[in-house]
Computed example of a mutant assay.
Amino acid sequence: MINGVRIFDTVLDGKKIKDTISRNSADFWKPFCKSAGWDFSHERVHSLSDLEYFFSKKIKENILIFSGHGNEDGFWLSNGECFNGKNLKDFHSKNHGKVIIFSSCLIGNNESLTQDFKNYFSAQALFSYRHIMHDRFCFLNESILLTSIEHRFNQGKPSFTINDFIDFQSKTDFMKNMNGKHVKLHPMVMT
């Protein structure tokens, strides 16, 4: 059962990415969560120390979404630091077992990185993208994914398995070329 979604949103400065203000996942997720009956909270993060601060506290939501720019090296923060699952203090055990989504480009291309993130969070599951993604298609994929996860729990299934994810991929495969032409693989991966 999904009890809530917490967004960790970051924006890069103009030195790396020209878009410094439009990324605000809360504008999408807040009404979506309200309509689904899930709790919602949102944090702006700009540095590794911001992440450490929020990670040191109890996080009641069981879905964590990291929205910002990414690549095969990790999740980039506003101040230019890159979170890679190895460069922060341990994720507090009171927050283990969550579902993690990196709503960021290319993180899913690096299997070692996604495994480092999954281990860091002691996550139940971790989802990421292997392609460059536009925000609107991230929102589309992730909202369908979370609805699928909740549907499984409502059917009495205790977890969302790799077979469930393969089913999700097959049902959303028709969308893979919405974000870019000639895409051969589903943009989302599960670790």
Results as ranks from 00 to 15, higher is better:
residue 45 V to K: 00
residue 45 V to D: 01
residue 45 V to C: 05
residue 45 V to P: 03
residue 46 H to R: 15
residue 47 S to Q: 10
residue 47 S to E: 11
residue 47 S to D: 09
residue 48 L to R: 03
residue 49 S to A: 14
residue 50 D to M: 06
residue 50 D to K: 07
residue 50 D to V: 09
residue 50 D to N: 14
residue 51 L to F: 07
residue 51 L to E: 04
residue 51 L to H: 04
residue 51 L to W: 03
residue 52 E to F: 09
residue 53 Y to P: 02
residue 53 Y to N: 13
residue 54 F to A: 06
residue 54 F to E: 13
residue 55 F to S: 05
residue 56 S to P: 04
residue 56 S to L: 08
residue 57 K to N: 15
residue 57 K to V: 08
residue 58 K to I: 12
residue 58 K to N: 14
residue 59 I to F: 11
residue 59 I to A: 07
residue 60 K to E: 15
residue 62 N to Y: 12
residue 62 N to G: 12
residue 63 I to W: 05
residue 66 F to P: 01
residue 66 F to C: 03
residue 67 S to I: 02
residue 67 S to G: 15
residue 68 G to M: 04
residue 68 G to Q: 07
residue 69 H to M: 10
residue 69 H to P: 06
residue 70 G to K: 00
residue 70 G to I: 08
residue 71 N to E: 15
residue 73 D to V: 14
residue 73 D to Y: 14
residue 73 D to A: 15
residue 73 D to S: 15
residue 74 G to F: 05
residue 74 G to W: 02
residue 75 F to G: 00
residue 75 F to L: 09
residue 75 F to H: 04
residue 76 W to N: 06
residue 76 W to Y: 14
residue 77 L to N: 05
residue 77 L to K: 04
residue 78 S to K: 14
residue 78 S to W: 07
residue 79 N to K: 11
residue 79 N to I: 12
residue 79 N to E: 12
residue 81 E to C: 11
residue 82 C to S: 11
residue 82 C to Q: 10
residue 83 F to A: 02
residue 83 F to W: 08
residue 84 N to E: 10
residue 84 N to Q: 05
residue 86 K to P: 01
residue 86 K to C: 12
residue 88 L to K: 02
residue 88 L to H: 05
residue 88 L to T: 07
residue 89 K to D: 13
residue 91 F to C: 09
residue 92 H to A: 13
residue 92 H to L: 11
residue 92 H to R: 13
residue 93 S to R: 08
residue 93 S to V: 09
residue 93 S to Q: 12
residue 94 K to W: 10
residue 94 K to P: 01
residue 94 K to V: 11
residue 94 K to H: 13
residue 94 K to D: 13
residue 95 N to T: 09
residue 96 H to S: 15
residue 96 H to R: 12
residue 97 G to I: 07
residue 98 K to T: 06
residue 99 V to S: 12
residue 99 V to Y: 14
residue 100 I to P: 00
residue 101 I to N: 01
residue 101 I to H: 03
residue 101 I to P: 00
residue 102 F to I: 06
residue 102 F to D: 01
residue 102 F to P: 00
residue 103 S to L: 05
residue 103 S to Y: 02
residue 104 S to A: 15
residue 105 C to I: 05
residue 106 L to M: 11
residue 106 L to I: 09
residue 106 L to T: 03
residue 107 I to W: 03
residue 107 I to C: 05
residue 107 I to L: 11
residue 107 I to K: 01
residue 108 G to N: 06
residue 108 G to H: 04
residue 108 G to T: 07
residue 111 E to A: 13
residue 112 S to W: 05
residue 112 S to V: 13
residue 113 L to M: 07
residue 115 Q to W: 09
residue 115 Q to D: 12
residue 116 D to R: 08
residue 117 F to S: 02
residue 117 F to N: 00
residue 118 K to P: 01
residue 120 Y to T: 03
residue 120 Y to S: 03
residue 121 F to T: 01
residue 121 F to N: 02
residue 122 S to N: 15
residue 123 A to I: 02
residue 124 Q to A: 14
residue 124 Q to M: 11
residue 124 Q to T: 12
residue 125 A to M: 02
residue 125 A to G: 12
residue 125 A to T: 06
residue 125 A to P: 01
residue 126 L to A: 04
residue 127 F to V: 01
residue 127 F to E: 00
residue 127 F to R: 00
residue 129 Y to D: 01
residue 129 Y to C: 07
